[in-house]
Amino acid sequence: MIDSQQASAALDDINDVVQRVRQSRIYEIASLIITLWGVLVFIGYIANYLWPQQGYTIWTIVDLGGLVISSSVGFFVNRRSGAGNFPIRSTISFVIIGVFGLYCTILLGHFGPRQMIVFWTLYGMMFYAIAGLWFGYAFIVIAACTTALTLIGYYCIGPAFLLWMAVAHGGGLVAGGLWMRRI
């Protein structure tokens, strides 16, 4: 028989493993979504560079595509884990974040294309950083790196800014998503 201190230590050990498993599952799902967003925004920047007049159309398609893909991944993961429901709360969260961003960029401020790109990237990364406070440091690392590269691009890179962002933002998300799978 063991004493209460040993029993308490065993329960602490169990809790530690359970936390690790939960974080591992969050990383597994998030890494897939982050990598997909990385590919999408990479394509978006390249398309925006090639057809600068079509920026609004390109980014509307990219954002809607990202929303559909993220929700679909959430749906399939829920179904596989037996939860079975459409991730309605996550989808509504994405929509609220998007609507508020649109309100800021279109009604409150009148941003140029360059500022618009920086705003949406930093705005998205802010939520990654907040998510990191609950779900693990990997989100914070991805947010910090992408934010730093975006600001460097904004202040230091001239006409090749969109190409810089394709690598810094799109490539950064893909690299971050793949890294998240390995930790």
């Binding site: 065993a10 169990i14 359970v18 498993v21 591992s24 599952r25 037996g82 939860a83």
Partner: peptide, 29 residues
Amino acid sequence: HQPLRLRIMAALNALPATTGLEFARLKKL
């Protein structure tokens, strides 16, 4: 009750009923 078996069972029990863990992932956890 053996410490490592307790950790293995804790990890597997934290998953949905039919979900398992790959050996490499279990090793890391």
